[in-house]
Write a protein that binds this DNA or RNA. Sequence first.
DNA 1: TTTCTTGTTGATAATGATTATCAATAATAA
DNA 2: TTATTATTGATAATCATTATCAACAAGAAA
Lengths: 152, 152
Amino acid sequence: MAKGDRKWRDRFRKHGLRFTEPRRVILEVLSDTIEHLSAEEIYMKVHKKHPNIGLTTVYRNLYTLERMGIVTKFHFGDGCHRYELIESNKKPDHHHHLVCTGCKRIIDYDDFMDEEIEYIKKVEKALSRKHSFHITDHVIQFYGICKKCKAA
Amino acid sequence: MAKGDRKWRDRFRKHGLRFTEPRRVILEVLSDTIEHLSAEEIYMKVHKKHPNIGLTTVYRNLYTLERMGIVTKFHFGDGCHRYELIESNKKPDHHHHLVCTGCKRIIDYDDFMDEEIEYIKKVEKALSRKHSFHITDHVIQFYGICKKCKAA
DNA sequence: TTTCTTGTTGATAATGATTATCAATAATAA
DNA sequence: TTATTATTGATAATCATTATCAACAAGAAA
């Protein structure tokens, strides 16, 4: 077992779960991409490496990984969910998404994160006071037209 | 035809569309609520007034209204889309949503809109320069636990 | 080791929201 | 009045996601 895998195994152990081959492969696929893959797309990449791993297993484990706080599930308005590894060495830790309504491409961006965090904090404080609402998460997404689609 | 209806009729006309009874009723339902109704929920309310209007018609017209810029479609992560009238006399023009992950209730809020607009503007400018991306819309949502669910 | 418990898997069927199809109908234009 | 075009409602189809369930495999207990 590779060194990185041992880490994963321990992480699963803590939740009383096992670090299986399908889980290893799914994490591998997610680690190797900067894209925002859907369950179906993940399944296809997984399938190339291990043709015996089924789609159900992919769905099931994406849910597991989500609960474990390892992946995040997004909805960009194209009829399916898309998944992203939270701790990826291919992406900035905290970032948001730019969705092109033309070609559906998704661009990560992480500018003005300080300003954003400042703004979010302010809102959180006000909301917890005004509505006694305890914020645990937020989603910020931008929609528009990318360079290519503008030219076309 | 009521005075308000004439306005709607003209608006549809401009798009080469007709202001029909199903459309009138759907708009009526949306105007009369502060909730964030799903297509199914809208259909049920519409159905009470006009039992002959079908679910398909509701879906179709919500799409039409969306394209016309009259309603906005949201996705709060509960497996369906929810619709809101853009120009409603029951809601502030610009607002965001607080989603309780416990009871799924959605709270509108419109605090700190100035700060937000300031922040958004900054991001828009930077993005258009950096990625030549032209932003047309954005989504900001907060997830957390509401008062009731916290107590329970 | 053997046995027992429990997590995991893959195939299949089921669900639920949304869309496509299509003939019938109603509104508008010619 | 007729021709055109938008609209409708019912039905079937689609697509992503979940539930079911028997077979299997890893780890714990004996």
